[in-house]
């Protein structure tokens, strides 16, 4: 995969429509945010941990944020979050859950597993642009990412 320079945000989302909307909203912020998209949890974890076809790459060190949907093929967003928090190299990596679910149990589970934030996808276009634009700007340009020491 050709990796361009810029701020790197990893989005794991299986809905084509939602992926396109998210990508468009992030591009609109014009903050040189480089978005990497996966539609499957296993592939996303291989990428984050430099396994299989990503072997030899210290990928997670360049990431500023991981955005996870909950309902995903093969592994759920919660499985990915759990794995990220279990591993020493990624346990402090900012993770935002981006989902359609307003279910309190999902919110509680997300925070219990160590999500930094939980965002519900708006239904209409303008709201989506504004919310995702705010999310991308906040985590890329306002938040200070953790260092490993």
């Amino acid at each position: 995969m050709e990796r361009k320079r810029g701020i790197e945000v990893l989005v794991v989302e299986d809905s084509v429509d939602d992926s396109e909307l998210t990508e468009f909203a992030i591009a609109q912020t014009k903050n040189n945010i480089q978005l990497i998209h996966f539609s499957d949890g296993v592939d996303a974890l291989n990428f984050i941990f430099g396994k299989k076809k990503y072997e030899g790459q210290e990928i997670q060190k360049g990431l500023k944020l991981v955005v996870l949907d909950i309902g995903l093929p093969t592994l759920t967003g919660f499985d990915i979050l759990r794995k990220i928090r279990e591993e020493h190299s990624t346990k402090m990596l900012p993770v935002v859950i981006l989902t359609s679910s307003l279910d309190e149990r999902d919110m509680s589970m997300a925070y219990e597993l160590g999500a930094n934030s939980y965002v519900v996808k708006p239904n209409e276009f303008e709201g989506y642009m504004k919310k995702i634009g705010s999310l991308a700007f906040y985590w890329s340009c306002v938040n200070e990412r953790p260092y490993q020491i």
């Binding site: 309190e104 925070y111 934030s117 965002v119 519900v120 919310k131 306002v142």
Partner: peptide, 15 residues
């Protein structure tokens, strides 16, 4: 301002 907007209007938490 971005911080306030994000945490007060974008982020959700269980009640």
């Amino acid at each position: 301002s971005s911080l306030a907007f994000y945490w007060c209007l974008v982020n959700e938490k269980p009640v």
